[in-house]
Design a binder for these strands. Structure first.
Length: 458
RNA sequence: GGAGAGAUGGCAGAGUGGCCGAAUGCACCGGUCUUGAAAACCGGCGUGGGGUAACUCACCGGGAGUUCGAAUCUCCCUCUCUCCGCCA
């Protein structure tokens, strides 16, 4: 079973780490499945783990849950006695008092002991439970990275009647980027965009936010930093040897890897009214990734960088598959329309179970044709849209009240890329290059570029 | 950055060691009354855990502590507000 994503090299190191964290880039499964569900559907859960290539110990979870229940019951009854005994003291006579206080002291010790035991069991249970990935959409293909279903293709790989250049060459020739300066200032993996590339970044962002806004998404710019608890709540692992996240020393803050983090964290611990769902939010943010372990993987130019700008869609829906699947479709539709408007050929894939990462129930990626990538061009990932059902919401504590059911239920969350600027820029530049070395600007973004093509400076 | 005040249920707002999971008002839901509505009156009205259930436990911004007993006392943290300074 292939466990690595297409972004990371296969190595023993990663295989072992990925049992804890299926993809260092994707959220870690510290988010989780409902305990009751696991116990009621033990075989299903076990089968799902096999399909996803994740090791799990469901019988151990069942056992730990049993232990937990009895410890809680025992603790409750001790506390009940404690309350009762303490409650008698004010009315007790002077002679009765010492005995009651002594009993109270003993009960206090018993409670502490019970709590300590419970803590151990719960920690173990939490750990086991956290290892379980989300359930998988019945239509998602089985297998690993190479088993994704090709859902559809739009356009044909661009044909050139000249020798096409890759984006590194094009950007150099047109004076659109300065990697040396980036390295000087912040190190390898950083860059300065320059001249029309700056206009292009702004144009792509502007185009994307207008698009998602028209589709009913509320726009946000988000903090580019988030607290540790928000990172974890969203399912990211902020610290540790293989983290993808930059942390700020002497604080509990980290640079976000995607606006999914602040957008998901935005409604943490809230109870929503079903009537206000779905909530559709889109965020413009910078994304920072250490790309630990990513070196050695072909990554020239701006394909894999430590910082880029992205417009991200995020959704909260009512807790049922119909609603979240519907929003998932909408998100993918928007992503496709953006790339169609940019006149970039692409394909849409339905990611296979073994390559989903922890929180995703289903994931659709758009891979754009990149003429300069690989040998004679390949499709490269430019967007990713996941339905995480209630997996993230459980950890984030985002619930809703529904008319039918008593109490609350965890909402479903979804996320998808509208535009990841650097990746989109590669596809745009490489596909729209002309024989004279200039780059044609698609009509959809000309009004922000202020030109119809990028040409070499004299 | 300095000084002060504060954080209690959907909202407002009491409560400063036991009678408090929490008064009261508003909002909300159900009922009575009404031709209908309003008003009035009656009743209900937080979340989570454990238990087949009766029931029980936890939660007063978060964490640790004191105590037989904590919304209430102590310490740390976070956030909000007011004033001063600084600043894009």
């Amino acid at each position: 079973m292939q466990l690595t994503t297409n972004i990371f090299p296969i190595s023993q190191l990663f295989i072992s780490i990925q049992y804890l964290c299926p993809s260092p880039l994707a959220p870690c499964p510290s988010t989780m499945l409902d305990l009751q569900f696991i116990c009621d559907n033990a075989e299903l859960v076990e089968q799902n783990c096999k399909n996803r290539g994740v090791e799990c110990d469901v019988p151990k979870i069942l056992e730990l849950r049993q232990q937990r229940s009895s410890l809680i019951s025992a603790g409750d009854s001790i506390r009940q006695q404690q309350k009762e005994s303490a409650g008698k003291i004010p009315k007790a006579t002077a002679e009765e008092r010492p005995a009651l206080i002594a009993a109270g002291k003993q009960l206090k010790v018993d409670v502490a002991e019970n709590e300590a035991e419970l803590k151990v069991v719960e920690a173990e249970l939490f750990e086991e439970q956290s290892n379980l990935p989300n359930m998988t959409h019945p239509a998602a293909p089985m297998g690993g990275e190479d088993d994704a279903t090709l859902l559809r293709t739009w356009g044909e790989p661009t044909k050139f009647d000249f020798e096409p250049k890759d984006h590194v060459q094009l950007m150099a020739d047109l004076d659109l980027v300065d990697f040396e300066a980036g390295a000087k200032v912040a190190g390898s993996g950083f860059y300065f965009l320059k001249n029309e590339a700056v206009m292009l970044e702004m144009a792509l962002v502007q185009f994307a936010i207008e698009k998602v806004r028209a589709e009913g998404f509320t726009l946000y710019t988000t903090p580019d930093l988030a607290r540790q608890e928000v990172l974890q709540g969203t399912g990211y692992q902020p610290r540790g040897p293989e983290t993808q996240i930059y942390s700020i020393e002497n604080t509990d803050l980290s640079l976000i890897a995607t606006a999914e983090i602040p957008l998901g964290g935005m409604l943490r611990d809230q109870i929503l009214d079903e009537a206000e769902l779905p909530i559709k939010a889109a965020g413009v943010s910078h994304c920072f990734r250490t790309e630990a372990g990513g070196h050695g993987k072909a990554s020239k130019g701006i394909y894999r960088v430590h910082q880029f700008t992205k417009v991200e869609m995020f959704g909260f829906t009512a807790p049922n598959a119909e609603d979240s699947d519907a929003l998932h479709e909408l998100i993918v539709k928007i992503e496709e329309e953006i790339f169609q408007a940019l006149e970039i050929p692409y394909q849409v894939i339905d990611t296979a179970a073994g390559d989903l990462g922890g929180p995703a129930y289903r994931k659709f990626d758009i891979e754009a044709w990149m003429p300069g990538r690989g040998d004679g061009g390949t499709y490269g990932e430019v967007t990713s849209a996941s339905n995480c059902t209630d997996f993230q919401a459980r950890r984030l504590g985002i619930r809703c009240k529904t008319a039918e059911k008593k109490g609350t239920q965890f909402v479903h969350t979804l996320n998808g890329t509208a535009v990841a600027v650097t990746r989109a820029m590669i596809a745009l530049i490489e596909n729209h290059q002309q024989a004279d070395g200039s780059i044609r600007i698609p009509k959809a973004i000309q009004k922000w570029m202020g030109c119809e093509s990028i040409t070499a400076k004299s």
